[in-house]
Amino acid sequence: MPLTLGAIILNVKDLGPAREFWTAALGLTPAGNPDFLLPPSTAPATRLHLDENDQTHLDLWIDHETDTLESEVERLISLGATRVEDWTYPPDADFVVLKSPDGTVFCVID
């Protein structure tokens, strides 16, 4: 049997605010150890993308049935995220680059 992707580890400066942000942003639930956050049981499997040029980051996909890209970006900003203003976007970009309060760069994808 092949291995399964068990966890993504984020190096954060302060566990409390990071836990609060990511729990609210992704609808996660603390499990056992309060620093282990589990997705809802209905969440799709997480993919692993390999790239020779990009930095390690999270890609977060919006739910088209309930959200738009801008509404989700605004929700995350209200939770403490900030836009990465100096990012170079391609002309047809379907994503926005944000930074969590703990400094983790992530993309919100339409």
Rank of each mutant, 00 (worst) to 15 (best):
N53F: 14
L5R: 07
T29F: 03
D59G: 11
R83N: 07
D102T: 07
A25W: 06
A93E: 04
V96M: 05
N33W: 04
D110L: 07
D51R: 07
C107T: 02
F95C: 00
S78M: 06
M1N: 13
A45E: 13
V84R: 13
E72D: 08
D86L: 09
I77T: 00
F36E: 06
T66E: 08
P2V: 09
D51V: 00
T82N: 11
L3D: 11
T82L: 15
V105R: 12
T29H: 08
N53E: 11
L50R: 15
A25K: 07
S71K: 10
L15W: 11
V105T: 09
A81P: 05
T46H: 07
G80I: 05
H57E: 07
T88I: 15
L3Y: 14
L50N: 03
D35T: 12
S41V: 12
A18D: 01
N11T: 15
P91K: 09
A43C: 07
I8L: 12
G103P: 05
D102F: 03
V12M: 03
V84C: 08
R75S: 02
T46M: 14
A7I: 09
L48S: 09
L50T: 12
L28H: 04
D110G: 10
L10Q: 02
P17F: 05
T88D: 09
G6W: 04
L50D: 08
K99T: 10
I77E: 03
P90I: 03
D67T: 12
W87D: 04
H57M: 08
G80H: 11
T88K: 15
P30K: 04
T104C: 14
W22I: 04
V97P: 03
L79H: 05
L37V: 06
V105G: 00
L60P: 00
P30W: 01
G27F: 06
N53S: 08
D51A: 14
P90K: 03
T42Q: 13
L10A: 05
D35S: 10
L58E: 01
I62Y: 02
T66G: 02
E85S: 13
L76N: 02
A24D: 13
F21D: 00
G16V: 10
L48A: 07
W87H: 15
T42C: 12
